[in-house]
Amino acid sequence: MVLRRLTIAVLFALVLSVPFSGQLAAQPESQCFVVDDGVCIWPAASDDNKPRQQRQNSHAGEEGLTGHDGKPAPEHVCATCHEEPDLLPEGHLRTAGMSMRGCRICHGTDQASSLDGTIFQSHTHFFAGGTCVGCHEDPEDPGEPETAVCTACHGTLEELALKTEHVAHANPHASPHGAPYAECVLCHYQHEPPDNFCATCHDFEFKLP
């Protein structure tokens, strides 16, 4: 947690150097934004380990606030979701009217101020140029994507297993329980914090994106 806060502090120091962010003040302690009933949470600062029930509410609801209204992400403006000023760190520059491209100037995955690992993975995907339809065939009815959708970009399960073969406890991508236990969506939630599905039964303390 401390490390995460430090990281965020460093990121904000970097953000300060970005030309148009002059009004930003680095106040890492103000990162804790637990949001009003069921709208969303700011994962960077959430200590809530069981926010899964918020998934349904997080981006559902009124048109224009859904994030799932079929528009590709770059057309989205941050403010459609982050309308409440409290959703952004205190002192963050106003995002109203800003496109995703604008967000990516500071927070793209190749930027030093990338928020990868501190925000929902859906945002990481957005910042990397992903779109709703990139994962959800029908954004009007966004179900959980098939594993093949994920492996199309991230490599086969075998390749992923190679990357994690030295992880402590067990290789999370080579479960002896077979393909149904290798579904990406069991752990890697995109619109809420990830969940270590193996820990349902095992003492495996995986840290996962």
Binding site: P176, H177, G178, A179, P180, Y181
Partner: peptide
């Protein structure tokens, strides 16, 4: 050979 019941469940699925 799979060392687990997945060796039958997965082929069943």
């Amino acid at each position: 050979a799979a060392g687990s019941g997945s060796g039958i469940v997965v082929p069943q699925l």
